[in-house]
Amino acid sequence: MSDQTHMPAGHDLAPGDEEQHSVGARILGYVVGLALALLLTATSFFIAGTDLVWQPSIPVALIVLAIAQMGVHLVFFLHITTGPDNTNNVLALAFGLLVVFLVVGGTVWIMAHLNANMPPMDQIMPMRR
């Protein structure tokens, strides 16, 4: 407890702002982020066109790589971290992600089932006359 009381007063941090770092440390953060992002991008493009891996695993791998790269961008470029001064930013992001997953997941789920439960189009068209 006593060692924690020396933490700086818990001011919030604006999204995009970093905690106090020297210019060199900030540039290094962007360099690391760029290197990771380029690495993940190169892996994505390589995986998409390769015959080396089991083909049905490619879409899953691409989605995982994309989510990983978005995480890299959030941490190294937008500076959204898990620190206590970033709670508001992370909560807003979490709510945004919830809506995104509801919209995309819900749409794909519902439309796929609708499609499966509908008669083929050439049987629907005569019904409309």
Partner: peptide, 20 residues
């Protein structure tokens, strides 16, 4: 930076998944 994040989703979902 946010545009870049959206582009990551675009090239993964549209171009890479679509070309496969």
């Amino acid at each position: 930076h946010a545009l870049d994040i959206i582009w990551v989703a675009v090239f993964s979902v549209v171009y890479l998944l679509g070309s496969g």
